[in-house]
């Protein structure tokens, strides 16, 4: 007992909390307090900066999220965007990783190329594709027209039924290489003994992937899935750069809605959207993680 107390005192002296104060201050002031405040503000109707004019309306803002067509659109779009981009980023990432995991002379160079869009800012990427997807004149339509596939040439970002998928495509372009590297780092940790053994047993490429590679990179798969799902729900810059939520409300997502609420002073509504997004992320991320973690194989 005495020793324990002495050790505690020693710990207190050796690791004083004042050393952590800068970090804790930043975290409390700019993360915890805003989160609580957001929760409170989301229950108010606000028009402009004047807090005295705020009216308590309970969960009205949240109800609106499911009733108002713009908000409903945004929620649906966020889900579409998150699901579509995650599916293709993981699929392409996995495919590229399998191909690059074999000893090629140009492996490193190829990895550098495929990863490079991840370091370019999304606004620049968005504008490049805005031009490539320009209706009629853009490179994509020009190529389609020149190979007699005119019927496939579309107004990619201007057609309301297509726009969200076009923006998804850009996101997939930007982050597939990143997802690939997540898988590659998982694959490089797999011991080559397994492949040797499989070779002796006469396994073909697909069997090796199915029974060795995939089960052993499940943790990476898990990570890639969550990062991309959450990233997809949070998307803002790419949409803002290409369509700003338009045409109409065709590509409206959580974050563009939040930005618009902020711009027009409807702060209560904006906070409600942000809280809703946080809740959805939490609901999504935690069970997905738990589910896949259970199935992980210990190497």
């Amino acid at each position: 007992m005495y020793v324990d107390k002495g050790y505690k005192r020693l710990k207190k002296r050796r690791y004083p909390y004042w050393l952590a104060v800068p970090g804790i201050t930043f975290f409390v002031l700019f993360f915890i307090i805003p989160s609580v405040m957001g929760l409170i503000l989301s229950l108010f109707n606000m028009n402009g900066y004047d807090f005295s004019k705020a009216v308590f309306i309970g969960i009205e803002n949240y109800k609106n999220a499911f009733v108002l067509p713009t908000m409903r659109r945004a929620i649906i779009n966020s889900f579409i965007f998150s699901a579509v981009t995650t599916f293709f980023k993981v699929a392409f990432g996995l495919m590229l990783a399998v191909m690059l995991n074999q000893k090629l002379k140009s492996s490193n160079l190829l990895r550098t190329v495929f990863f490079s869009p991840a370091v370019v800012n999304s606004i620049a990427v968005g504008l490049i594709f805005k031009s490539l997807m320009h209706p009629g004149k853009g490179l994509i339509d020009t190529v389609l027209n020149s190979v007699n596939l005119e019927f496939l040439a579309k107004n990619w970002l201007g057609d309301p039924s297509l726009a969200i998928y076009s923006v998804s495509f850009i996101e997939i372009w930007k982050w597939s290489g990143f997802t690939m590297v997540i898988f590659l780092s998982g694959m490089q940790a797999v011991s080559s003994d397994y492949y040797e053994a499989a070779k002796i047993d006469g396994a073909d490429g697909w069997q090796k992937f199915k029974y060795i590679t995939f089960p052993l990179i499940l943790p990476s798969f898990n990570n890639a899935l969550i990062i991309n799902l959450v990233g997809g729900l949070k998307v803002f810059d790419l949409v803002q750069a290409t369509t700003q939520g338009g045409p109409g409300t065709a590509t409206e997502v959580f974050s563009t809605l939040m930005y618009k609420s902020f711009g027009s002073g409807r702060f209560g509504e904006g906070c409600a959207v942000a809280i809703l997004l946080s809740v959805i992320i939490a609901v999504f991320a935690i069970p997905t993680y738990a589910f896949i973690e259970k199935r992980e194989v210990i190497q």
Binding site: F30, F31, I33, S35, M37, M258, F262, C271
Partner: peptide, 15 residues
């Protein structure tokens, strides 16, 4: 929690 959830930007603006 901060690892998963985004910063609440509008309240942060007020703060």
């Amino acid at each position: 929690i901060g690892l998963v959830l985004p910063v609440q930007i509008i309240p942060t603006y007020f703060i």
